[in-house]
Design a protein around this nucleic acid. Structure first.
Lengths: 224, 224
DNA sequence: ACAAAAGTGTTGACTTTACACCCATGG
DNA sequence: CCATGGGTGTAAAGTCAACACTTTTGT
């Protein structure tokens, strides 16, 4: 079917991913450098235009893989951006997603990119981005904060386990807020989402810390 | 700019509103009967295709007004539906919104419609709808449940005030769950969102009940 | 031996839950 | 006068917040 009514002419959908990680207490977001117009050479969130023949989720995964090499990541819907002029080429509605990825995969990243460049930026040091992506990051960060207290989205940050002081620092970095060590530990353990591996590792302190892991179950509510 | 790549050809955006009300303990959703193809004469959620020259929010408001006559209603983003074949005419991504409207406006409704018909349907008695709207309603209902405990979305249900047993029944109807009268009252009052108007009305009981109203402030978190 | 971070327990404040009685009105 | 739902208080249980000392290791 051909669309003739100019009211409906040339609309498209952007899928956009805000992917965060936390390294040494610094919250970072993944950006790619654009190699095409518009906004050529500007940094942007990974994403792009949805194809006609793919489901929205699939388009998101495809774009993410093309631009960053990342596959196998859980993403959740974050928001929709629908100002008329958010894209200057044609009418594009942007749909933003949120994800978290572990430090291991950060290093793999640079070898698999298709974009001219991809890198992590500390969230208080984001350059001027393409489109409305600065706004999208800010919005996604808010959602990330909600998500780490309402769901265990951080599980993906620690595929090899974590110590409690370590994950506490991660919560503190994202929420910009400190917790009492004893209460944090008690609360986290009481949720029943993690278990003691009976291993110990040195994270930061001199005394080795116990290594915990998330249980496999998909229980997903009310962390903290 | 003319789009030639068939991968990006003829995409559009549906804005879709799930508008709920509660009457006598029955949760209802607003549906309209379609007067055009596709799905002519089928019931559907109010909404339609976004114009090129309007912001997403504006398109939503316009569609809602055209199809139901409703203006001045708060809507929040609910979800995005992006299966390739959710529309059989052309590729449409659906963006769904959630709102609640008071009983007063229910009656006004039928006089202002542009659609061939508009009516409220109890949520356990929804007919087979156009597109994926049955799925959207189900999804929106889940979100409604979350919203009434995490925000005071129900404020709009009672523009002329309410008694505490009355609003309790509303919560119970939506959440499908009963609360202890005394504890419900205490909790609701302790939130500081409502005030006693010093009027009394007969709602259901034999003893007149106090009339409360929501305060004007826009405070929006952690109800119940 | 000491510095630095890990680990642990208790108490008081607060919140939530459970529960029983009296009150005002309409029939 | 009685049936119906509205309004109130209290005690026990549970959760949350604050807080200080001991343990293990590297230097």
């Amino acid at each position: 079917m051909e669309i003739k009514n100019p009211l409906y002419f040339n609309q498209g959908i952007h899928v956009i991913a805000s992917i965060f990680t936390v390294e040494k207490g610094i919250v970072k977001v993944l950006l790619v450098r654009r190699c095409n117009e518009p906004f050529k050479d500007k940094w942007a969130l990974p994403g792009g235009a949805l194809y006609n023949n793919e489901d929205l989720d699939d388009g998101l995964k495809r774009e993410l893989k093309e631009k960053t090499g990342i596959t196998n990541i859980d993403l959740e819907l974050c928001n929709v951006f629908g100002k008329v002029n958010r894209s200057n080429i044609m009418r594009m509605v942007g749909i933003s997603y949120l994800g978290v990825i572990d430090n291991e995969r950060v290093s793999i990243l640079n070898k698999t990119q298709k974009t001219s460049d991809a890198d992590w930026f500390a969230i208080d040091n984001i350059p001027d981005l393409a489109y409305d992506h600065n706004e999208i990051i800010k919005d996604s960060l808010e959602k990330l904060k909600e998500s780490i207290v309402n769901s265990n989205i951080l599980r993906t940050l620690f595929p090899n386990g974590f110590t409690i002081p370590e994950i506490q620092k991660t919560y503190e970095a994202i929420l910009n807020k400190n917790f009492d060590r004893r209460n944090f530990r008690r609360k986290l353990l009481s949720l029943g989402l993690i278990y003691d591996t009976n291993k110990e590792i040195n994270f930061e302190g001199k005394k080795p810390a116990k290594l915990y892991k998330f249980k496999e179950e998909i229980s997903n509510k009310n962390v903290l």
